[in-house]
């Protein structure tokens, strides 16, 4: 098996969006997510020596990011203190009969299950995008996810409009194939 090389110069292009989306579905705040991704890259740089090339570069960065996300939650939990944590349904004796019903209402309220599925779907889409050739990924993201005008993309990437549509076509075909097994 060939060992994975580490190329920090390409990290932003290759993984920034992937890591960002991974983070934002878990922390729900753009700025915090940006910071965590940035910190992950810096931490990656610092521990580059530890990268053995057995996992892919992305898997390795995600493992760093996961730690950052956990640290983030630890930090905000310790800031909140105990008071908020202690509020739960079982603690008040009066409302003992009500809690079950409230829980049920909570779940049906498009809660955890729905979000989890979207989270997984987001991860799957990101994963498939990251398998595209770099140019296809860049064009697809600008056009589809960031909603740039065709003209803007053409100017920025120095391609013609018909080029753009060919690239979009290839990207969409590849993505549909990639997602087909689990999501279609």
């Amino acid at each position: 098996m060939t060992k994975e090389k580490i190329e920090p110069n390409k990290w932003i292009d290759r993984y920034a969006d992937y890591l960002f989306n991974y983070t934002i579905t878990r922390v729900n705040d753009r700025e915090i997510a940006q910071d965590l991704v940035q910190e992950t890259f810096f931490a990656g740089l610092k521990s580059m020596k530890n990268f053995k090339g057995e996992a892919s570069e992305r898997t390795w960065l995600v493992s760093i990011l996961k730690r950052k996300i956990i640290d983030h939650y630890r930090k905000i939990n310790s800031k909140k203190g105990q008071a908020e944590v202690r509020i739960n349904y079982n603690s008040s004796e009066e409302g003992e009969g009500d809690w079950l019903e409230e829980r049920v209402a909570d779940l049906s309220d498009l809660g955890a299950a729905g979000n989890m599925e979207n989270e997984e779907l987001g991860d799957a889409i990101n994963n498939c995008i990251s398998k595209l050739p770099e140019k296809q990924a860049a064009v697809f993201k600008m056009k589809t996810l960031q909603g740039y005008e065709t003209e803007t993309i053409c100017n920025e990437l120095d391609i013609t409009a018909s080029n753009l549509w060919v690239i979009i076509h290839r990207a969409r075909t590849a993505l549909a194939e990639c997602l087909e097994e689990n999501w279609f």
Binding site: A16, D17, F20, N21, I24, T25, R30, A33, Q34, V37, N118, L121, G122, A124, I125, N126, I129, K141, T144, L145, Q146, L179, W183
Partner: peptide, 11 residues
């Protein structure tokens, strides 16, 4: 699917 997942990207 892309719309449903609301995939976010960095500026």
């Amino acid at each position: 699917l892309v719309q449903k997942a609301e995939v976010k990207t960095l500026d």
